[in-house]
Amino acid sequence: MQYKLVINGKTLKGETTTKAVDAETAEKAFKQYANDNGVDGVWTYDDATKTFTVTE
């Protein structure tokens, strides 16, 4: 399945996608991506759209 990440950071904004077997695996990949880019915020997930959002 394909999952999307929407980033609403202080210095980084945008979107990225990943393919993963489940939401938990996608979340780990997205959190690593956010961490690598210095984004630390509040996470939400919408199962209907398979979209994670992180807001600083």
Rank of each mutant, 00 (worst) to 15 (best):
T11D: 10
V21S: 10
V21Y: 12
N8E: 09
A26Q: 01
Y3S: 01
Y3N: 02
N8C: 12
L5E: 02
A29V: 15
D22R: 05
T11W: 14
E24N: 10
A20Y: 08
D46L: 04
A29N: 09
T18F: 13
G38M: 07
D36G: 06
D46W: 03
E15M: 12
G41N: 01
V42M: 11
A29M: 14
D22S: 10
D47M: 08
G41P: 01
D47T: 08
N35F: 15
M1K: 12
W43I: 03
L5Y: 01
F52N: 00
M1V: 13
K31A: 05
T49M: 06
T11G: 08
K10E: 07
T25W: 06
D22T: 07
K28T: 08
T44N: 08
G9W: 06
A20H: 04
K4C: 08
W43K: 00
V54D: 00
T55V: 09
L12W: 14
A34I: 07
W43G: 00
A48V: 11
L5A: 03
D36E: 12
A23N: 09
Q32I: 10
G14N: 09
T49H: 06
W43Y: 02
N8L: 13
K10Q: 11
G14E: 12
K10S: 10
D47H: 10
N8K: 11
N35I: 14
G38N: 10
T55I: 08
Q2H: 11
Q32C: 06
K50V: 04
T51L: 04
A48L: 11
V42G: 04
T16C: 13
Q2P: 07
N35K: 15
Y3A: 01
A48T: 12
K50A: 07
N37E: 07
A26N: 00
D36I: 10
N37A: 13
T44K: 07
V42K: 09
T55A: 04
N37T: 07
A20M: 04
D46G: 02
T51G: 02
K13I: 10
T16K: 12
T55F: 07
A29L: 15
E24M: 11
K13W: 10
A34D: 00
A48H: 10
T11Q: 10
T25G: 09
E56I: 10
Y3D: 02
T51H: 03
W43H: 00
K19Q: 15
T49P: 01
N35A: 15
T16P: 03
T25D: 08
E24D: 09
Y45S: 02
G9V: 13
K10T: 12
V39G: 02
E56G: 05
A34G: 03
A48F: 11
K19V: 15
Y3L: 02
L12P: 04
T44Y: 08
Q2W: 15
K19A: 10
V21M: 13
F52M: 02
T25C: 09
T55S: 08
M1A: 12
D46A: 04
E27Y: 15
V6S: 04
K28N: 07
T44L: 07
G38F: 06
N37M: 15
K50S: 06
Q2N: 12
K28C: 07
V42W: 09
T17K: 07
E27M: 11
L12N: 08
T55P: 01
Q2G: 06
D22I: 03
V54I: 11
Y3Q: 01
V54N: 01
N8G: 04
A20L: 03
F52W: 06
T18V: 14
K10N: 10
A29K: 10
A20C: 08
G38I: 04
V6K: 07
K28E: 08
I7N: 01
A34F: 03
A29E: 12
V42N: 09
G14P: 05
G14V: 14
N8S: 07
G14Q: 14
F52K: 00
G9Q: 05
A34K: 01
G9S: 11
E15L: 11
A34P: 01
F52V: 01
L5V: 03
V6N: 05
V21T: 12
V6I: 13
K31N: 04
T51P: 00
T11H: 13
F52I: 02
G38K: 08
A29T: 14
G9Y: 06
G14H: 13
D36K: 10
G14K: 12
K28G: 06
W43N: 00
W43L: 03
I7S: 03
E15F: 13
N35T: 13
E24W: 11
Y3V: 02
K28D: 06
Y33N: 02
A26W: 01
V39K: 02
T53A: 04
T53K: 05
T44I: 07
T17V: 11
T53I: 05
K13Q: 11
Y33K: 03
D40E: 12
L5P: 01
A48W: 07
K28H: 09
W43P: 00
T49C: 04
V21W: 13
V54K: 00
K50Q: 09
E56C: 06
T55D: 08
D40W: 12
A34Q: 01
K19F: 15
K10H: 12
T18I: 15
K31I: 08
T16H: 14
D36M: 10
L5D: 01
A29Y: 15
E24V: 13
D36P: 01
G38Y: 05
V42H: 10
I7Y: 07
K4Q: 07
D22G: 04
V6E: 05
D47L: 06
D46C: 08
T51R: 03
D40F: 14
Q2D: 14
K4L: 09
T16M: 15
D22H: 04
T44W: 08
A26R: 00
A23I: 10
E24R: 12
Y33F: 13
K13V: 09
K13T: 10
W43R: 00
T11C: 14
K13S: 11
G14F: 13
G41K: 01
E24C: 12
T25N: 09
N35M: 15
A48K: 11
G41V: 02
T55H: 07
Q32G: 07
D22M: 04
G9A: 10
A23T: 09
